[in-house]
Design a protein around this nucleic acid. Structure first.
Length: 466
RNA sequence: GGCGACGUGGCCAAGUUGGCAAGGCAAGGGUCUGCAAAACCCUCAUCACGAGUUCGAGUCUCGUCGUCGCCUCCA
């Protein structure tokens, strides 16, 4: 079985063949840290977390870089507006973001490079491009010469000529061509700056990712990821810079996640159409967002609203229902039931892998997980014991972990309250025996208020924390 | 204006070598039950529209309408 990945570069699904056997070098563009991150960033990080977890599950060693852009116009502008130091400002938002990722149960990247810590490599790269004739300095700026790069535009499917007509690009007479982009920006008064062969200045936006990849991954990588809003110009420019310098194909697979839609529009920092991760997590769980992401194709736009989130919460409850223990008095299921349970475990495993191998079709894979939940619940209803349910429940646990879902199992077995709750249940059983419904319902209602849900069946009562 | 993606039941959504349309949520009916809850069982779509290719199309081609993204900072 082979894993297929949709490659933006070729607009086709391609089989995953890594540069080095068993190792995946992945780079994902992280945020520019000038404000709190929003749920759109969370979606992107989650998509690549799911890809990362799945590839690990399939036996690959992941070398995963996600960067922080910690110096740019907006950070400087924001810092100046607040009278703050831009580096400290960025540092604070980086810590916030790392906390966000942790709260969202997103595994940390292998390493998080930062633009400001790669200045030497950036300067070295720019110098190399200037030397090869792919870049030219003007008044302390350095620009990339797009006309020198024959296949510029191939990732985004654009032609340089097409983009000139009707474009909103500022005409800068100092540039040879309007599409030439800055690799290095000359320092203006009051801005952070580093010494360079072209005078004091700071890196342009695109060059940092190229330099970090070159520095930490090497000339070629397997997967380069990011939001599809980065395809042009950011990733296009990364390709131009890196490949012009190395003469080798940069990333084998370009993977882009779709945009999260809030009110029918892209969630975006610059337009203020956003919900921060913090805000989201004060109302919903990390699993809720993760399920919502998993339930759709990562490449398409993601519908995000309270209605969809509520559906996800209910769906998660159903998924978790598979973990419930055997019914009181379970005497064991029939051979037929156990056979169909075992069969479904196999089918779910196969279907999960087949779907995920096919460009990470998590929604399809989820479907097979729900199939297994149904069969587990059927088995339980027909009297399966905990021992009989265990293998199937273990499979659900295994596969949902690959997705990064937490699905907190009915907590409570470690609680000191257990003995008291059992005591109340004993008392209530006596009351019910005497048909004192008012008292028995009172106990059930009051426990519900305390977060303990009781469920009666003819063979006894079960309880769980909700 | 240019480039690209998409349009599947009330909602979310899978479905790319074309062959009787996954799954979840919601809804209705039923089983169980003192009641409640949960679970289980049953019911609920011909795939934006039009034309074409084909024995056969949601799945290919063309057109129309609509939505979204990029072309400026953006996950």
């Amino acid at each position: 079985m082979t894993i297929k990945i949709y490659n933006t570069l070729t607009r086709k699904k391609e089989e995953l063949e890594t540069l080095e056997p068993g190792i995946v070098k992945m780079y994902v563009c992280g945020p520019t840290v000038y404000s709190k991150a929003h749920v759109g960033h969370a979606m992107s990080a989650m998509v690549f977390d799911i890809i990362r977890r799945y590839l690990e599950y399939r036996g690959y060693e992941m070398r995963y870089l996600m960067n922080f852009t910690d110096v740019d116009d907006k950070i400087i502008a924001r810092a100046n507006a607040q009278g703050a130091d831009p580096f400290q400002l960025a540092e604070g938002y980086i810590r916030d973001y790392e906390q966000n990722l942790s709260d969202l149960n997103i595994k940390p990247a292998t390493f998080n490079p930062r633009a400001t810590q790669e200045i030497d490599q950036i300067i070295e790269m720019i110098a190399g491009l200037v030397e090869k004739g792919y870049a030219y300095p003007v008044d302390g700026d350095v620009y990339f010469r797009v006309t020198k790069d024959e296949d510029y535009g191939r990732l985004s499917g654009r032609k340089i000529e097409d983009m000139q007509a009707g474009s909103r690009i500022d005409i800068d007479d100092r540039k040879e061509h309007p599409m030439d982009f800055a690799l290095w920006k000359a320092a203006r008064p009051g801005e952070p700056a580093w010494e360079s062969p072209w005078g004091k200045g700071r890196p342009g936006w695109h060059i940092e990712c190229s330099a970090m990849n070159l520095h930490h991954h090497g000339e070629q990588i397997d997967i380069h990821g990011g939001g599809n809003d980065l395809v042009f110009p950011h990733h296009e420019n990364e390709i131009a810079q890196t490949e012009s310098l190395t003469g080798k194909p940069f990333a084998r697979y370009w993977v882009h996640n779709g945009m999260l839609q809030l009110g029918g529009e892209k969630m975006s920092k610059s337009t203020g159409n956003l919900v921060s991760i913090e805000e989201f997590l004060s109302n919903y769980s990390a699993d809720t967002l993760r399920f919502t992401v998993l339930n759709a194709n990562y490449r398409g736009p993601l519908t995000f609203n309270d209605d969809v989130l509520a559906q996800s919460e209910n769906a998660l409850n159903r998924l978790a229902s598979g973990f419930r223990p055997a019914l009181p008095g379970a005497k064991g299921a029939t051979v037929d039931v156990l056979a169909s349970l075992a069969k479904q475990v196999e089918e779910t495993q196969t279907s999960f892998i087949n779907n995920m191998d096919d460009d990470f079709n998590s929604a399809g894979a989820l479907g097979s997980l729900f199939d297994l939940v149904r069969v587990i619940n059927q088995a339980r209803t027909s009297g399966a014991t905990n021992e009989e349910l265990q293998p199937a429940q273990g499979k659900i646990r295994e596969l949902t972990s690959v997705f990064g879902l937490v699905l907190a199992e009915t907590k409570g077995s470690e609680s000191q309250a257990d003995a008291f709750i059992d005591l109340l249940l004993d008392l209530r059983a006596s009351l019910r025996k005497d048909k004192l419904w008012a008292y028995s319902d009172l106990i059930r209602d009051r426990l519900k208020e305390l977060g303990v849900t009781l469920e009666d069946s003819k063979d006894g009562t079960t309880w769980r924390w909700d």
